[in-house]
């Protein structure tokens, strides 16, 4: 009976979600149209939404968007290429693992955004600075989760592989990398959110000429609330798309890990 009611739930849930968003939209619209709130604080919701569409079809804005996303992607790629192999090696031994934890615990309380002033001095205000920050901040979650994943490898699986005479490198890739991959992916997901946070923060603090954060600051300084709202919404959409895509990849690629966890 539970499953029957659940299968009927899905559409209901979607309908209700749409109604909720619709009600919010109408409420905000009415609030400004009735002049209960001045447009200085809240432009009409419909005009903000139109602005979102017009931004997403403007070349200049898409270019700014790409500058920010590019910094995130490069930074994430470098962080992954460094952290995963390092984690695989460190994860093999207990002592290396514990030593790494101490270093991470030591560095973690310093919020990466506080390094922005330092990074500006060293790398200037361009993409290099953003990439450096993203790499530094994303290294830790990926490294930590890789090591953690290495420790979750079933020793029986490793022994079995050895019994069947698989070589060291093949055991490494077949057994360890595969078993640790769901954890690595979790680390990557966390790192993705952090990358966006740092790239935007760096732009807000450093200024510069290109990037979504710059657009926001510029529009804010001339009091163009409508566009500031719209860009903020665009950042949310990016986050939604990124997390949605990663979630979909996770469900497809690591369905076996989900099943295992559900049993355990």
């Amino acid at each position: 009976m539970a499953s029957a009611s659940r299968s009927r739930r899905v559409p209901v849930k979607w309908v209700r979600g749409a109604i909720g968003a619709g009600v919010l939209f109408v409420a905000l619209e009415v609030l400004t149209r009735a002049e209960l709130v001045t447009a200085e604080y809240l432009p009409p919701a419909s005009s903000i939404l139109r602005e979102v569409f017009s931004l997403l079809t403007t070349r200049a804005f898409l270019r700014d968007l790409w500058v920010t996303i590019q910094a995130c992607l490069i930074g994430l790629a470098i962080a992954t290429l460094v952290a995963v192999p390092l984690g695989l090696v460190l994860g093999l031994g207990r002592t290396a693992y514990k030593a790494t934890i101490v270093v991470i615990e030591f560095l973690r309380p310093i919020p990466s955004v506080a390094l922005i002033p330092l990074a500006i001095l060293i790398y200037g205000r361009g993409t290099d600075m953003k990439v450096a920050l993203v790499v530094f901040a994303c290294l830790w979650p990926i490294l930590f989760n890789t090591i953690y994943g290495m420790h979750s490898v079933d020793p029986v699986a490793a022994d079995t592989a050895r019994v069947f005479g698989l070589g060291r490198i093949r055991i490494g890739t077949r057994v360890y990398l595969r078993s640790a991959s769901p954890f690595i992916f979790t680390g990557f997901k966390i790192a993705t959110s952090i990358a966006v946070i740092l790239a935007v923060s760096a732009e807000l603090i450093a200024g510069g000429s290109e990037g979504i954060g710059i657009v926001m600051l510029e529009e804010a300084s001339v009091g163009n609330q409508k566009t500031v709202y719209a860009v903020t919404i665009v950042t949310g959409l990016i986050g939604l798309v990124l997390l949605g895509a990663l979630g979909a990849v996770e469900r497809r690629m690591f369905a076996w890990a989900q099943a295992e966890r559900a049993v355990a």
Binding site: V113, L204, M216, T232
Partner: peptide, 13 residues
């Protein structure tokens, strides 16, 4: 899914 620092310009205004 809005990165929290992205709220800053809006709140600034």
């Amino acid at each position: 899914s809005i990165p929290p620092p992205a709220l800053l310009p809006l709140f600034l205004v």
